[in-house]
Protein backbone atom coordinates (compact mmCIF):
# COMPACT_ATOMS: atom_id res chain seq x y z
CA UNK A 1 0.00 0.00 0.00
CA UNK A 2 1.58 3.20 -1.15
CA UNK A 3 1.15 6.34 0.82
CA UNK A 4 -0.99 9.11 -0.61
CA UNK A 5 1.14 12.11 -1.49
CA UNK A 6 0.18 15.42 0.04
CA UNK A 7 -0.09 17.54 -3.11
CA UNK A 8 -2.79 20.01 -2.11
CA UNK A 9 -0.59 23.07 -2.78
CA UNK A 10 0.07 21.89 -6.35
CA UNK A 11 -3.65 21.46 -6.91
CA UNK A 12 -4.31 25.01 -5.73
CA UNK A 13 -1.50 26.36 -7.90
CA UNK A 14 -2.90 24.46 -10.88
CA UNK A 15 -6.39 25.86 -10.57
CA UNK A 16 -5.04 29.34 -9.85
CA UNK A 17 -3.28 29.18 -13.23
CA UNK A 18 -6.37 27.80 -15.00
CA UNK A 19 -8.67 30.54 -13.72
CA UNK A 20 -5.97 33.22 -13.88
CA UNK A 21 -5.26 32.67 -17.58
CA UNK A 22 -8.93 32.22 -18.52
CA UNK A 23 -10.06 35.33 -16.68
CA UNK A 24 -7.03 37.27 -17.92
CA UNK A 25 -7.95 36.41 -21.50
CA UNK A 26 -11.60 37.35 -20.97
CA UNK A 27 -10.56 40.68 -19.42
CA UNK A 28 -8.27 41.35 -22.38
CA UNK A 29 -11.22 40.69 -24.72
CA UNK A 30 -13.39 43.13 -22.76
CA UNK A 31 -10.71 45.83 -22.66
CA UNK A 32 -9.95 45.53 -26.36
CA UNK A 33 -13.64 45.62 -27.26
CA UNK A 34 -14.13 48.69 -25.09
CA UNK A 35 -11.19 50.54 -26.67
CA UNK A 36 -12.27 49.67 -30.19
CA UNK A 37 -15.83 50.81 -29.47
CA UNK A 38 -14.45 54.18 -28.38
CA UNK A 39 -12.27 54.41 -31.49
CA UNK A 40 -15.21 53.50 -33.70
CA UNK A 41 -17.42 56.14 -32.10
CA UNK A 42 -14.74 58.80 -32.53
CA UNK A 43 -14.04 57.84 -36.13
CA UNK A 44 -17.74 57.77 -36.99
CA UNK A 45 -18.24 61.27 -35.59
CA UNK A 46 -15.19 62.48 -37.50
CA UNK A 47 -16.54 60.88 -40.64
CA UNK A 48 -19.90 62.61 -40.27
CA UNK A 49 -18.28 65.94 -39.35
CA UNK A 50 -16.33 65.87 -42.60
CA UNK A 51 -19.39 65.00 -44.63
CA UNK A 52 -21.17 68.12 -43.34
CA UNK A 53 -18.13 70.41 -43.56
Amino acid sequence: MEETLNTMSYLIAGYAVIFGVTLGYIVSLIVRTHNLRQDEGLLLSLDQGEDEG
Binding site: L5, L11, Y15, I18
Partner: peptide
Protein backbone atom coordinates in the same frame (compact mmCIF):
# COMPACT_ATOMS: atom_id res chain seq x y z
CA UNK B 1 -17.60 21.63 -13.19
CA UNK B 2 -15.27 23.28 -10.67
CA UNK B 3 -17.45 22.14 -7.76
CA UNK B 4 -17.58 18.63 -9.25
CA UNK B 5 -13.79 18.51 -9.53
CA UNK B 6 -13.20 19.65 -5.97
CA UNK B 7 -16.03 17.92 -4.10
CA UNK B 8 -17.59 15.16 -6.23
CA UNK B 9 -14.51 13.56 -7.78
CA UNK B 10 -12.69 11.19 -5.41
CA UNK B 11 -9.09 11.86 -4.41
CA UNK B 12 -6.70 9.53 -6.19
CA UNK B 13 -5.07 7.04 -3.85
CA UNK B 14 -1.40 7.49 -4.73
CA UNK B 15 -1.03 10.94 -6.25
CA UNK B 16 -3.41 12.71 -3.90
CA UNK B 17 -5.07 16.02 -4.60
CA UNK B 18 -2.91 17.09 -7.55
CA UNK B 19 -4.47 14.41 -9.73
CA UNK B 20 -7.54 16.66 -9.92
CA UNK B 21 -5.59 19.06 -12.12
CA UNK B 22 -5.99 16.38 -14.78
CA UNK B 23 -9.67 17.16 -15.52
CA UNK B 24 -9.21 20.74 -16.65
CA UNK B 25 -5.71 20.05 -17.95
CA UNK B 26 -6.97 17.64 -20.58
CA UNK B 27 -10.05 19.75 -21.31
CA UNK B 28 -7.90 22.85 -21.92
Amino acid sequence: ATLAVFFYAPTERVMGAVQKVFYFHVAA
